[in-house]
């Protein structure tokens, strides 16, 4: 098993609370990061990221779901591209969805700020690898 560079700040944007619970547990078990923030839709995340007061707490990695109310994953990416220049650090974004629809996969891969598209459920090995890639 690979070892990950520890202590990155992780952000999950997903409306599925069970998934967030699982991801959190997995990150804790694998000791990948002690810092995890969660948002239930894209808009909440954008509001946090854009706030100047939060610039010193920005995440290193974002796990972004596609289907969410208010602002979905695509909407988040559109806004993210716009606010990116104002952000104080580089953020690695993974789109994580249970959709195996090729249209969704192609669309995600077509966005340059999305590092990869991962199909749910995310396995432990994949998770560790994603942390390494983002290092």
């Amino acid at each position: 098993m690979m070892t990950a560079t520890p202590f990155k700040t992780v952000c999950v944007i997903d409306d599925d609370k069970i998934y967030i619970y699982g991801l959190k547990k997995l990150i804790t078990i694998k000791e990948l990061s002690p810092n995890l923030m969660e948002f239930y839709n894209g808009k909440e995340a954008i509001d946090f990221l854009i706030n100047p007061e939060n610039q010193n707490q920005l995440p290193d990695i974002i796990f972004l779901d596609i289907n969410m109310p208010v602002m979905d994953g695509w909407g988040f990416m559109e806004s993210f591209v716009k606010i990116k220049p104002q952000l104080s650090k580089k953020i690695t974004i993974y789109m994580v969805s249970s959709s195996i629809n090729q249209d969704d996969i192609n669309r995600a891969k077509g966005i340059s700020d999305v590092t990869d598209y991962v199909i749910k459920p995310i396995s432990q090995d994949t998770l560790v690898e994603l942390f390494n890639v983002a290092a």
Partner: peptide, 25 residues
């Protein structure tokens, strides 16, 4: 598509939970 997608999200979560259950918790 709908069937596959909606069942997948549940089965994915189920798998997730079962895996965590198997961990030393």
């Amino acid at each position: 598509h709908i069937v596959s997608h909606n069942l997948r999200s549940h089965s994915g979560n189920l798998q997730f939970m079962v895996n965590i259950f198997a961990e030393n918790i």
